[in-house]
């Protein structure tokens, strides 16, 4: 029996390759980015606290989407990618 595959689809062509310099985990600025839910902030706050034992944390900062239900605006992503070297993301509810 021959059927049409109901999950068949085509992928978008090409994925842009980018090269970045290595991350300095002890000194580079880090953004703790949440989906704007309180529990996501609490989770990342705990990580920031633990990082204090191994590195400087004065350049580890919080940021979030405007709304948990909407994608982050392109301007927000551009701003964060220009300001930080590392992003730690938390999606919580």
């Amino acid at each position: 029996m021959r059927i049409v595959n109901p999950s068949f689809g085509l992928s978008l062509a090409g994925t842009e390759q980018v090269t970045t310099r290595p991350v300095d985990w002890l000194n580079d600025p880090i953004v703790l980015f949440t989906n704007s839910k309180p529990n996501a902030h609490a989770l990342l706050a705990g990580i920031r606290e633990k990082l204090a034992g191994v590195r400087r944390i004065d350049n580890i900062e919080f940021a979030s989407k405007d709304s948990a239900s909407q994608p982050a605006p392109a301007a927000t992503i551009d701003e964060i990618s220009g300001k930080y070297r590392v992003a730690l993301l938390a999606l919580a509810d």
């Binding site: 029996m1 021959r2 059927i3 049409v4 068949f8 689809g9």
Partner: peptide
């Protein structure tokens, strides 16, 4: 574009109603 699933048409062999489900 490139195919993700290998083929759009699949031969699933001989399946009666319950086996198809």
């Amino acid at each position: 574009m490139s195919d993700i699933e290998a083929t759009e048409i699949i031969d699933v062999g001989d399946l009666d109603g319950e086996a198809w489900t």
